[in-house]
Computed example of a mutant assay.
Amino acid sequence: MKRMPFEPPTEHYDQRVAAIDEEICHLLKQRKDLSNNPGFPTRELIATWAEKYSFYKDFLNIVFANFLNEEFYKPIVEPNGFLKNIPILKSFEKDDIFYTVTFVSQFENASVVHLDIDRIYPNVDWHHREHSFFELSIEGKENYDCRIDGGGGTGGHESFTFVISPTLPDDISKYKLMFKQYKMPNKKPTGIEFVISGSA
C-alpha cells in the first residue's frame, strides 16, 4: 500500500516561530525518551490544558492522538525484485477460527507474508460484526521491521499481507512469525496471539 507523498498545506511560514517549533520538537523527544508508552491524557487534563492555554479540547485530543501514531509515518519499504514464493501452510486454530500462513513472497529487499483467516459465523451479519486487525513481529537473528500492507475479506474469509524488511531467510526454521490481534480504535489487544514457525 503505497503512501502518498506529503504536501505542506501552505507555502507560508513565519520564521519568527521557528525557534518555538524547534523547542516543540525538543520537548517531543524528551517525552519519547521519558516513556515509550505514555498513553493518553485524561479528559480532566485535556479540559484543564484547553482552558489554560486557550485551545479547543478536540484539537488537543487530535494532537495527543497523533503522538501515539509515530510508527505509522516510518518510511515504507516497497518490495521490488521478485525472487520466489515459499510455501508455509502452517495453521493455528482457536474458537472455530482457522489462521493460516499460506506462503511468503521473497523479494530482493523485503518479504511479504500472507495470512488467511477462515471462520463460521452462524446468524451473524458479516458487515455488522466487530472487525479486528493483526500485528506481526519476527523472532530471528536480525531485527525486522514489519508493517501490515493490506487486508480485507467477505463472508467467513479474510486475508492480510505484511511486508517485512530486510528479507527473511529462505529457511523458515530460522525465524518465527508472531501474530497479535487487536481491535480499533485505540489498538486494544483481544488476547488472540499465536506463533507460526518452521519447526515441527
Rank of each mutant, 00 (worst) to 15 (best):
R3G: 10
F6Y: 08
D14T: 02
D14S: 05
D14E: 10
R16M: 02
V17F: 15
I20Y: 13
I20F: 14
E22Q: 13
E22I: 02
C25Q: 09
L28S: 07
D33C: 08
L34A: 15
S35M: 01
S35Q: 06
S35C: 12
N37A: 14
G39F: 12
P41T: 01
E44H: 12
L45E: 15
I46D: 05
I46G: 08
I46E: 04
T48H: 14
T48N: 04
K52F: 13
Y53E: 05
Y56A: 10
D58H: 13
F59M: 08
F59G: 00
L60S: 12
V63M: 13
V63T: 07
F67E: 06
L68R: 14
E70A: 12
F72P: 00
F72Q: 11
Y73V: 04
G81E: 05
G81L: 05
F82D: 02
K84C: 10
N85C: 13
K90F: 03
K90P: 02
K90Q: 10
F92P: 01
E93N: 08
F98S: 02
T100M: 12
V101G: 01
V104P: 02
S105F: 00
E108G: 01
E108H: 10
N109R: 06
A110R: 09
V112P: 00
H114M: 05
D116G: 04
I120H: 08
V124R: 14
W126S: 09
H128T: 12
E135G: 11
E142Q: 15
Y144D: 03
D149H: 15
G152A: 09
G153A: 11
G155F: 08
G156V: 10
E158I: 03
T161Y: 02
F162K: 07
P169H: 10
I172A: 05
S173E: 15
Y175T: 01
Y175R: 09
L177E: 03
K180F: 01
Y182K: 02
K183D: 06
P185L: 01
N186K: 13
K187Y: 11
K187C: 12
E193W: 01
I196H: 02
G198T: 04
